[in-house]
Design a protein around this nucleic acid. Structure first.
Lengths: 307, 307
DNA sequence: GCTAGTCACTGAATCCGTTTAGTGCGTCTA
DNA sequence: TAGACGCACTAAACGGATTCAGTGACTAGC
């Protein structure tokens, strides 16, 4: 058995052409007139030798790898991440690219960037934050805005009119949390309801304080739309500590439902998001391809005990 | 401004030597006699030009990138992952390598492997599962075994003698879950106590059934040591549904404490693990370096309401 | 009958760092 | 005084795919 892998030269020799021609065939290089017979010979040789282009060599020549790097940042634990990544990966693969996801710090990324030379670097927070809406959609809702509207809509349907918007204190969620606040405020205004932004710190004491202030300053608030499930859990814990219960004292909905929502005590109502389409779309964008018709990513509230 | 980056040839020209010599200096190639004066000239030129070796070119020549790929598998959400990755990343960086973490499927990884050609691929489940103990430790506990002992020790100290071991039904946790079972059984036996393995499926109905069976077949069981926090949450939810409460009916401890433990209702006692040292060690191993003195990674049970 | 153009293909340069196999020179040993 | 050896360096090959600039054969147009 040959210990080393087949190269483009081996393929060329087997097909009786030059490496140049093999490259033209394999990459469908435009402007090259190569008859089907020759193409076929090359492709048979490729199949027979089990040839795969050496990605590193190609990257050296092309200046970058056929890789896309996705920076997940603080959304690391986000539930829709899995479907987003799956969709993105699938679409990238279709175009001969692979996906790398980083969850780490920026400094850890420097070396990585140098080492893999990705074609594109995607920053999830920035993508989401930028509101990725298609050009000329005339102000129609885009992905995140639609989700926010669905979450709020659930509370509106249940008759709530004064709704607190619970945002995380962690600054790494910016500019996402401000965006969400604006989207919910706008959606509430459209429906003739009121949105009251409140900041929920991670620590129980801070969360308890924020909750107490809400109760004191906005006694008419009857529901809370949380930034994500984790914020909802903190709110629920603070309510429990204060002797309050959902939904009687305050209804609570999560966002981007994760596996813990159903297990929580009480089980949390939350917005379930399928982000696969969003991922596919982001992939096409990253590759500079047209993004196709924009389908709004589906989402719906799974109702449990807290609303 | 020069639009393209500095190459080794630029450095060589600036330092008045050949590219070969620059390479020898930068890589501290053994067996080469290069006076300090020349080394200094080269290093100044490097600093002045801001030269960084082109990782892709190097990878092409060397046959692999200075990268290590870590396969997180089902441990993706595991809380100690963060510290493990941080430690590993730090140590790898010290040796000029970078870390890539994959959370995805094997098929998605194929292309990635080809594209980045990592020096080593690490499979977390296999590393953990292999019991990574130093040679000749005479049967002393290694990392995971020590953690299991600490978790169980917490229950033993509280007077429990008949302890259920709650393992996930998800087969992707193998061989980790079997290993844990054996470790806890052994630790219990050493203390003259009994360990009762039970399998906890994700779905509430299955979990309820498993719990009911435990109560029926082992009425003397007073505590549950869970495989991880998620299993503990499922158990807690099943107990709540059955009208049982922790710790009065059954004490429950988690493993590898995550951010939800403190928020849970009731707040979950769990084992907090600092895996940074383990990560550093795994990194040194991956690079084929000596792993240094083996310090047992620290862990302790954070006691809350469920024990 | 000659130029222009297309077709089908190829040689060689290129990307950039590493490494092998030397070279020239001086010193030490037998 | 030849041979061996160490020192301080270098030229050229190498890894493998891509791509620019052709080349020879043939057809079409005037």
């Amino acid at each position: 058995m040959t210990s080393s892998r087949a190269t483009i030269r081996d393929v060329a020799a087997a097909a009786g052409v030059s490496p140049t021609t093999v490259s033209f065939v394999l990459n469908d290089t435009p402007g090259q007139a190569i008859p089907e017979a020759t193409r076929h010979r090359v492709r048979s040789a490729v199949a027979q030798l089990g040839y795969t282009p050496h990605r590193i060599a190609r990257a050296l020549r092309e200046g970058s790898s056929r890789l896309v790097l996705l920076r997940a940042g603080p959304l690391r634990g986000s539930a829709s991440m899995a479907s987003l990544i799956a969709g993105m990966d699938e679409e990238l693969r279709r175009h001969g690219h692979a996906l790398i996801v980083t969850y780490g710090t920026v400094e850890a990324e420097r070396e990585l960037l140098e080492a893999v030379a990705p074609r594109t670097v995607l920053d999830l927070v920035r993508i989401y934050g930028s509101g990725d809406s298609p050009q000329g959609d005339g102000g129609d809702v885009d992905g995140l805005e639609a989700h926010a509207a669905v979450q709020l809509g659930h509370l509106l349907e249940l008759g709530h009119r004064s709704i607190a918007v619970a945002l995380p204190a962690d600054p790494s969620f910016e500019p996402l949390s401000s965006l969400r606040r604006r989207q919910l405020e706008a959606a509430a205004a459209r429906a003739g309801a009121t949105a009251i932004p409140i900041i929920i710190p991670r620590e129980p004491s801070g969360a308890a304080l924020a909750l107490a202030r809400l109760r004191a300053e906005h006694p008419r608030a009857t529901a809370i739309a949380a930034f994500n499930d984790d914020v909802a859990f903190v709110v629920l814990a603070a309510m429990h500590a204060a002797g309050l219960s959902a939904p009687d004292d305050l209804a609570v909905v999560g966002f981007d439902e994760g596996e813990h929502a159903a297990l929580w005590n009480p089980p949390l109502s939350s917005l379930r998001i399928d982000a696969a389409e969003f991922g596919r779309r982001a992939a096409r964008r990253a590759l500079g391809l047209d993004t196709g018709a924009w389908q709004r990513p589906p989402s719906q509230v799974v109702r449990r005990a807290t609303t």
